[in-house]
Design a binder for these strands. Sequence first.
DNA 1: AGCACGCCGACT
DNA 2: GTCGGCGTGCTC
Length: 804
Amino acid sequence: MVSIAKVIVDVPTMQTNKPYDYLILAEFDEQIMPGMRVEVPFGQGARKVQGFVVEITQASNFKGELKAIANLMDLTAVLDEELLLLGREMARWTFSFQITCYQTMLPAMLRAKYEKKIKVIDEIPENLFFELFKGRNELTWDEATERGLMPQLLKLKKKELVELSYSVKNQAKTKKRRMIQSDLSFEQLEEEIIGLGKRAPKQSVLLRQLQSLNNESISTTDMNKKYGVSAAILREAENKKWLSFFEEEMYRDPFKHKEFKKTEPFVLNDTQEKALQPIMKAVKQHEKEVFLLKGVTGSGKTEIYLQTIAETLKNGQSALMLVPEIALTPQMVHSFKGRFGGAVAVLHSGLSIGEKYDEWRKIERQEAKVVVGARSSIFAPVKNIGVIIIDEEHEGTYKQDENPRYHAKDVAIWRADYHSCPVILGSATPSLESRARAYKKVYTLLELPERVNKKDLPVVEVIDMREEVKTGNRSNFSIVLQEKIRDRIAKKEQIVLLLNRRGYSSFVMCRDCGFVLPCPNCDISLTLHMDTKTMKCHYCGHEEAIPRICPSCNGHKIRYYGTGTQKIEEELHDIIPEARVIRMDVDTTRKKGAHEKLLSAFGNKEADILLGTQMIAKGLDFPNITLAGVLNADTGLGLPDFRASERTFQLLTQVSGRAGRAELKGEVIVQTFNPEHYSIQLAQKHDYDAFYQKEMLLRHRGNYPPFFFTILITTSHTEELQASKKMQEIVESIRPNLRPETILLGPTPKAVARVNNRYYYQTIIKYKHEPTLFKQLQELLSQSQKEMAKGLQIAIDSEPMHFI
DNA sequence: AGCACGCCGACT
DNA sequence: GTCGGCGTGCTC
């Protein structure tokens, strides 16, 4: 009986968003199982694609002739039953392809890579052979296109002298090392040592080491580095049959050179104990309860996480914890590795793809039982999950802004449901959505209202920058802030300065005619980058020289406006020359490990001031920081985004938490042009509850989440009319099927209507209850296939983070 | 995505 | 008449 595999193929179109049937050849019959990656022929020609086996059955409904699976790409399944099911369901609620979901779940190394080659299969004229193939037998597709050889090659193909070959490249390479094992017993080795001449000291060292191995093995590198035994000696020893070599798979350990000091659980205070109890109960009883742990900065949330995880490990279960990428600091890693040692796998963007793959394998083999990582770690192949923790749950980075547009929180709750275990959402400033759910008792609210060190939250002083301007201070630093910075430097204490760059960029403008340099491809102005001395477009990546003369009026009065971290650093240097500044932003942290290096330099007090963007607001904990400054608190407030106030409040609260973590008292300076804005005033008072009340009122008035669910539909096309027409059509087709209280905003052009020469139109749907809406939209997507093949793009984003 | 099929214009 | 343009539809 021939078995049949149902395969999701790597061809992202609606028609292929269902399994295709393939025959399983006898040679694979034993090993094949659902969740494995396979290489399958697809379409006419010789094209081969990667696919995922989702099921193995005995019969097929397909009317045509089945093709056979060409190759297995894995020895064991890379997706288990749970993840296969999750991918299928996620594709539905994120309006994306199943294949895209599966690819997202896996480390980059297991994602499909294709190799397209042109092979010589018959005699071709010698001159052509050398001209085209340079005497080789095959040519990569890329090279052929680059050298413009395709027309000639296609002619040869017609004559069947060459053929196209496709293959799926399996990049999943493990790192191996060469190991030595002794082939002689202790006594035999002893004899060899006695028999050695005095002039063979290295061999004697080797033999002594082999004796001390005690049936263990040692790597050739260790033997060389630690004992100075060279490869030549080892080779000779192999010839003498003293030892033999074998290959051992190893992990690329990103923390190879680090020691983690073992930490012990702290004794919890009463409030922590009170918060921990219900969680522990849920962990022990395997209840799928969602907790919202609301604790002020420094209230010891991490210790609660650690003790919860310890409990799940005790029960033989594993734990999954998400943190925002930028909070994945060495400090964070330390506290987890310190408590749980080798049982911890850490996944973050700073790892190489090889390192990520190895961490993934450690989890897959259940060697790591605790996973700490950013958004995509929610798909870690952990079995038997005992708890899922999402720290800083309000963070927008948990929502992926490309397909599949999933929210890690939704996936967490899905997986917790599957495993029947609790979820902990932790934050000092919960998202309104989560807080509201806790209010409605959908989540269980747990609160940690005080800091562990019993210190008061730092005093926040709000500086009205309008007054500064009036008194003639045109700089970005208020007089008060300048004084405080000098004071801290004198006291050898440290400072963090945050530049809130959201919605802000530096641009150049002509003072005479007001001309602002636009991007040729997008409807947006170019941003000045001092490091590369160019103008860049943040949307399409276009780059050009900084103009000296105004292209519009030929004037010479081109000036820089706006504020970047680079400019602030220079300004700071002018005002306070003695300040030693470390700047942290995308430009200085791009390189691998740069982030960590800068932070440890700051930790070693090599600088007085840490100046940066959002990335310095999260999680860092330096006892010597006593002053935190926000240079421009309100740049986000002007944005047409209903979450602007919430983000500002969260950011300010977070920054306040950076100051005065230890013995020294902290102080916070917030500079703003909107000192009376409620998000700034309430952040100053550390009053989350009042902010929640106020903001809920406004959300209610504006019919925004959490009172309404939202879906954002975007169409785009290189021709504006096509995009607008389709959007119009979509709105007309769904409106009649919606309830009267459902609100449609659109169609409207997007705020940046043209990006990369494509035109964007959007519609927002706000609804309370639309049981058929998802189905309708699914339908809409599948009906639009033809247009989508002709350059139209439709994106559907449920609960988007940004509406512009 | 990539390939074949099929239907129209310009060429040996 | 044939070569080759790309619009259309299918891939187990």
